[in-house]
Every structure is written in structure tokens, then in C-alpha cells.
Amino acid sequence: MAGVNGFAALIPLLMLFPLAATIRQSWPGAERCGGRISNIISGPGWLVPLIFIVPMCIGLMMAGRLSPLPQHTYAVMTQSHGPATGLALALAVVTAELWLMLAPAMIVLRFADPARRAAMRGLIPLNLFLGLVFLAIILLVWN
């Protein structure tokens, strides 16, 4: 049984890498951050698991099985599945919410033509507004 607990403790650590990659891809000026350790911790390869993590979290939120509030997710999952699972899912919720509210607009601005960036500044408030409305609807309907 100790092997299962040891492996479960690694899952929250592994969830930090996609979160770090999300922050790095959406942080202004992050393209200058290109060291070897930085690429290991937050390289674009860590975005691949998000193909599964983000839709899973959003689907579970819409079904009412996962709270959009990370602290609530942690508390509920810790009670039923242990602290490692609770922490891993709380980190997954934070990552999914970043992708709902901020990351798409920031990435578009990061890779946009510099001459057109000023015209796209409205993307950030629009992305934030739409993400917050979506999460508020989930909170109102299921909680």
C-alpha cells in the first residue's frame, strides 16, 4: 500500500508543470525566459496534458461533480480520496480556470503582429468577462 501512496503524492507535483507552462505561455514577456531549467519546468510540452485536463475539469464542473472553487474542490476530494488527489484536482481547477478566463487572450496577444496588438487589447477584458460569466453560471446552477 505504501507504493500507491507514494505514487499518489507525485500527482500534485506533476500537476504543477502544466500550470507553470500555462502561466509561462500567457505571461507577458515570457518569451525571453528560455533557460534550460525553465524549459524543463514550464516548456510548451507540458501543455499537452491540458488537452485532457481542461475539458475534464469543465465537464465535471458542468455536471456538478467538481466545484469551480479550488478550495472547495480540495476539501471535498481530500475527504473522499485523500490529500494528494484533493491537491491535484485543486491545481487542475486553477489551470482550467486560467484557460477559461485569461490564457487564450494573452497567448493571442503574445503571438500577434506587434502593429496589431494595440487593436486587440479588448481581448483580455472580453476573455475575462466570458470566463467569469461561465463560472458564475456553473456556481449558481450547481452550488
Rank of each mutant, 00 (worst) to 15 (best):
G3W: 09
V4L: 03
N5S: 15
N5M: 15
N5W: 15
A9Q: 13
A9M: 11
A9V: 09
L10I: 02
P12V: 03
P12L: 04
L13G: 11
M15I: 00
P18G: 07
L19E: 04
A20I: 03
I23A: 14
I23G: 08
Q25W: 05
S26Q: 10
S26E: 11
W27Q: 10
G29T: 05
E31W: 08
C33N: 12
R36Q: 05
N39F: 09
I40C: 10
I40P: 06
I41G: 08
I41C: 13
S42P: 10
S42I: 11
G43P: 07
G43E: 03
G45Q: 02
G45E: 06
V48Q: 13
V48C: 14
P49I: 12
P49K: 11
L50V: 13
L50D: 15
L50C: 07
I51E: 01
I51V: 04
F52I: 10
F52G: 04
P55V: 15
M56L: 14
M56H: 10
M56F: 13
I58W: 04
I58C: 05
G59R: 09
G59N: 12
L60D: 06
M61D: 00
G64P: 13
R65H: 05
R65Q: 07
L66R: 09
L66Q: 13
P68M: 14
P68R: 00
P68G: 04
P68N: 07
P70F: 09
Q71P: 06
H72N: 13
T73W: 05
Y74H: 14
Y74P: 02
A75G: 03
A75H: 07
S80H: 06
H81A: 09
H81C: 08
H81Y: 08
G82E: 06
P83E: 07
A84P: 01
G86T: 00
G86P: 02
L87T: 01
L87M: 03
A88N: 09
A90I: 05
A90Q: 02
A90Y: 00
L91I: 04
A92M: 08
V93K: 13
T95W: 07
W99F: 12
W99A: 07
W99G: 07
L100E: 10
L100T: 14
L102V: 15
L102K: 12
L102H: 12
P104K: 14
P104A: 10
A105G: 08
A105E: 01
I107P: 07
I107C: 08
L109S: 06
L109A: 07
F111T: 14
A115K: 15
A115Q: 15
R116N: 10
R116C: 12
R117F: 06
A119K: 14
A119Y: 15
M120I: 02
L123R: 08
I124C: 05
P125D: 06
P125Q: 07
L126Y: 00
G131Y: 00
G131T: 01
F134T: 12
L135F: 00
L135D: 01
A136L: 05
I137Q: 03
I137C: 03
I137P: 04
I138Q: 02
L139V: 07
L139F: 00
L140K: 11
L140W: 11
V141A: 10
V141M: 03
N143M: 02
N143W: 02
